Amino acid sequence: MSIELHPPELKFKRPFDRETVQKLYIKNPNSAPVAFKVKTTAPKQYCVRPNSGRIEAGQDVEVAVLLQAMREDPPADFRCRDKFLVQSVSITADQEFANISSVWQSVEKTAKDQIQEKKIRVAYLPAEVSIHQNGEPEVSQKAPSPPPYTSPSPDSHHLAPKSEGSPSRDTVSETDGEHVEAHETVPISKTMADQLAEAKAQIATLSKQLKSSATQKKMGDLAMETKEKVAAGVTNIGRTTQGPEGVPVQLAAVLCLAAFLLAYFFF
């Protein structure tokens, strides 16, 4: 029971300082349901969900293949040697209600020859990739021969790509089924500078309000004092200052005239 894979090659685009996800579609063109299982040569570097399951006749399933974040990008001329292996087997009538793990355990013990296998290569693309006319990505150097398949490991976080001199491993392994979520953007909070600026603005506003209140109070006191002075001035209006009492001018003139006449007639 052969299955169909799309795309035939998984291509991950740089940069690799964060998790990168590619979709793999597995189709069952047969008239009977099949069970599938995904394995890889680099189980520490990838996470697959789902890594096994059942596909009904004529249906397909979407598989998310996540490349873990690396400490640093590999060289520009690096050609990835990682591979994926997709195994499939027909589900018989007596296995109709069995779970997928039981199906695979039974097949691997009694009917290994019925397991169908398809391989998928992995390619690392630059941020801006040039594509040849044949559809293959352009690379500067010929890639070295791929390594043997490796054994699984649950710790698959932030590993750099394998170098050409790394020791080889000898068994095909299933990928870790736990899905690693991509990094989420941390919500942006106010900085200390922003908080300090807001505090200064509040202090300035309060100081202005305090000064305004003091000015209003001072103006009120001044208005009250002015009002009292005006009231006192109105009360004193009409009052005249009396000068010192003395002889009226007319009386003085009469006395002078009388003295003159007396002196004229008697002397």
Rank of each mutant, 00 (worst) to 15 (best):
K83F: 11
V86I: 15
V86T: 10
I91C: 02
T92C: 01
A93I: 05
A93E: 15
N99P: 08
V103S: 00
Q105N: 11
Q105M: 11
Q105R: 12
Q105H: 15
T110I: 03
A111F: 03
K112P: 13
Q116I: 04
E117W: 01
E117S: 12
E117A: 10
K118T: 15
K119V: 13
I120K: 02
R121S: 14
V122I: 12
V122F: 05
A123T: 09
P126Y: 01
A127Y: 01
S130I: 12
S130H: 06
I131C: 09
H132W: 11
Q133E: 10
Q133G: 13
Q133F: 11
N134W: 01
N134P: 12
G135C: 01
E136Q: 10
P146T: 04
P146A: 13
S151P: 00
D155N: 10
S156C: 15
H158A: 11
H158F: 05
L159S: 08
E164F: 09
P167Y: 04
P167T: 05
S168G: 03
R169I: 05
R169E: 15
D170I: 08
T171S: 04
V172Q: 06
S173T: 05
S173V: 09
E174W: 10
E174P: 06
E174V: 12
T175F: 04
D176H: 10
D176F: 11
E178F: 13
E181M: 06
